[in-house]
Design a protein around this nucleic acid. Structure first.
Length: 448
RNA sequence: UCCUCGGUAGCUCAAUUCGGCAGAGCGGCCGGCUGUUAACCGGUUGGUUGUAGGUUCAAGUCCUACCCGAGGAGCCA
């Protein structure tokens, strides 16, 4: 038998006989000539079966193959720019074909269009389709880039618990579960534990699933999502931003380099991504507010609904249209820093000269993809934190350990959380977050 | 939780202001074709119109309640 190769490396085998093990993705026949599009998990390639070049049995097998039948194919690799595929440009002239399983029931997902409900009910099959497959390959690369960069920059992976005794930030709705008779909650952030970890390890990150039980039903929300949260001791707000812009740029550039075929198959305009490198613009909340209200006064509208941008008062948090408007003004992601303390988590450090603001920063992705990072400098002031816990009506006893961190060697420190799915959505140019994770958990949907 | 839109064949949809025989394309199946790209051509297959009730000679269409889905708001990553 010829050498078994992966389709993603097929260009290295032109002129050689190879074996592909995979599934029939699509087929068009033209009498004595059959075009099989075969996928093997690493790519899609066109395999051509000429009646004269194979045995009658093989030709009949090829002719009668059904969508998603599993098969093993052997043949000669040749370059041909007419050939579709991921990556395209090569095809296999089939000499032998072995049907592993011929699908006899109709495969539900045809090459025609389908509705979202139908596709989501068949998510376990939908992930075989090229757009889903490409996006999930990009996701894996984004995650690898994240870990490679952090590991190489001295951040140590420290896993934080998923079952937690209390709300981390006290604002969002949590999933409650039973922990041997006492209530426990699925983690919405590893943030507070990370602050303990940095006092032991200097620079750390946690990377895992987080859970938000809000009844959010938009293209940017899922109930279970993955977040990477780096945290570092002796790092202030401004150094934190430098880390973030290098980090995000590395993720984007690595994906551009390693997932060219997938981004192309997604139809992504990569020229927008090629521009993503440090430095990113930084604007103060006051400045952003002014920008928004100036535009609102002129009756500016924002996509995707083209509704008028509402004016806001100082102290208000930005809504989705405000974020979109601000991000639209820049080609790169933009940092908005020094939000009013009242709209941010209790642990954000106060700005000494403007105590009503905090040393926080959000990173807004371009092209309307919204907030991909939330972060900032954490308060190292014990008394301020005690007051904040009271002000936010949080159970003091649950935070005693956290306050200990300010009693024993408190230092300035910062961190941030990057949402994996929103980042993948932006890099892939997708319209909905549900396509960025294999099995999304959406409001009212937990099958399959 | 609130607002908007929707539910008709396996899938995507149509069904004439104002109620009158349930349709098309795709898929599947059969046949034809040596360069297809969501191929094409001919034939064929296909229905509890989301559920329950009501009005009517007659309901996919009108009325009531409910169920399910989509998009958005708030909140956030």
């Amino acid at each position: 038998m010829a050498e078994e190769v992966g389709i993603e490396r097929i260009a290295d085998y032109v002129g050689e006989e190879v074996t592909i093990k995979g599934w029939l993705y699509a087929k068009t026949g033209k009498g004595k000539l059959q075009f099989l599009q075969v996928r093997d998990g690493t790519g899609v390639i066109q395999c051509v079966v000429f009646k004269k070049e194979v045995t009658p049995e093989v030709f009949e097998d090829a002719r009668s193959l059904t969508q998603e039948s599993s098969l093993i194919i052997t043949g000669m690799v040749r370059a041909d720019e007419r050939a579709p595929g991921i990556p395209g440009g090569h095809e296999i002239g089939v000499s032998d074909l072995n049907v592993v399983q011929c699908v006899t029931e109709e495969y539900p997902i045809t090459p025609k269009e389908h509705g979202i409900d139908f596709l989501m009910q068949h998510r376990h099959l939908w992930i075989r389709s090229s757009r889903q497959w490409s996006a999930l390959r990009v996701r894996a690369t984004v995650i690898k880039a994240i870990r490679d960069w952090l590991d190489s920059q001295g951040f140590l992976l420290m896993d934080t618990p998923i079952l937690t005794p209390a709300a981390c930030e006290g604002t969002t709705t949590l999933f409650e579960t039973d922990y041997h008779g006492t209530p426990a909650y699925l983690s919405q952030s590893g943030q507070l534990y990370n602050e303990a970890n940095i006092m032991a390890f200097g620079r750390v990150y946690c990377f895992g699933p987080t859970f938000r039980a809000e009844k959010s039903k938009t293209r940017r929300h899922i109930q279970e999502f993955w977040m990477v949260e780096p945290e570092a001791a002796y790092v202030d707000l401004w150094e934190n931003l430098k880390i973030q812009e290098q980090f995000v740029s590395y993720i984007v550039q690595t994906t551009l380099r390693e997932r060219q075929s997938e981004l192309e198959s997604l139809g992504r305009d990569v020229s927008r991504l090629e521009k993503i490198e440090p430095p990113f613009p930084r604007i103060h909340y006051d400045e952003a507010l002014e920008m928004i209200n100036r535009a609102a006064a002129k009756g500016t509208t924002v996509p995707p609904e083209d509704e008028p941008l509402p004016a806001i008062a100082w102290g208000d948090d930005f809504g989705a249209p405000h974020e979109t408007y601000v991000a639209e003004q820049f080609e790169k992601p933009v940092f908005v820093h020094h939000y009013p303390s009242q709209v941010k988590a209790f642990y954000m450090a106060q700005e000494p000269e403007r105590p009503e603001t905090c040393r926080s920063a959000d990173l807004l992705a371009p092209e309307g993809y919204g907030e991909i990072i939330g972060g900032g400098e954490r308060s190292s002031d014990l008394e301020y934190l005690e007051r904040q816990i009271e002000r936010h009506d949080l159970p003091r006893e649950a935070y005693e350990w956290y306050l200990d961190l300010r009693r024993y060697g408190s230092v300035p420190h910062s961190g941030f959380g990057l949402g994996i799915e929103r980042t993948v959505m932006w890099i892939c140019g997708l319209q909905h977050i549900r396509e960025t994770i294999p099995f999304p958990r959406l409001l009212g949907r937990i099958y399959p």
